[in-house]
């Protein structure tokens, strides 16, 4: 899927959770929302996009994808 589309989706979710929570908690909420509602291929792809250094993540969005990446690594490893 288009990288910009997925990043935008992450940032949109982050914009909801960020104002109500400290950044770390917001990131957990965002990661949880994505885990519950995104197809695994989209989650794999957003991690790859983050690993490739996409510049447009919001701070909470980036932190959320880091959580997803860690979870994926745990699952793989």
């Amino acid at each position: 899927m288009h990288a910009d589309t997925l990043v935008r989706m992450v940032n949109d979710i982050s914009e909801f959770f960020a104002p109500a929570n400290p950044e770390a908690e917001a990131a957990v909420e965002v990661a949880g929302h994505i885990t519950r509602s995104w197809d695994p291929r989209m989650r794999r792809q957003i991690v790859e996009i983050w690993q490739a250094g996409h510049a447009d993540f919001s701070p909470v969005g980036r932190a959320a994808v880091e959580i997803l990446a860690a979870a994926a690594a745990r699952k793989a490893g």
Partner: peptide, 18 residues
Amino acid sequence: NEAGLRIPNMFEAALDGS
């Protein structure tokens, strides 16, 4: 046990070939 694709996700995935 994993969520599937939503309609707009299906469109995106169709365009990327998956």
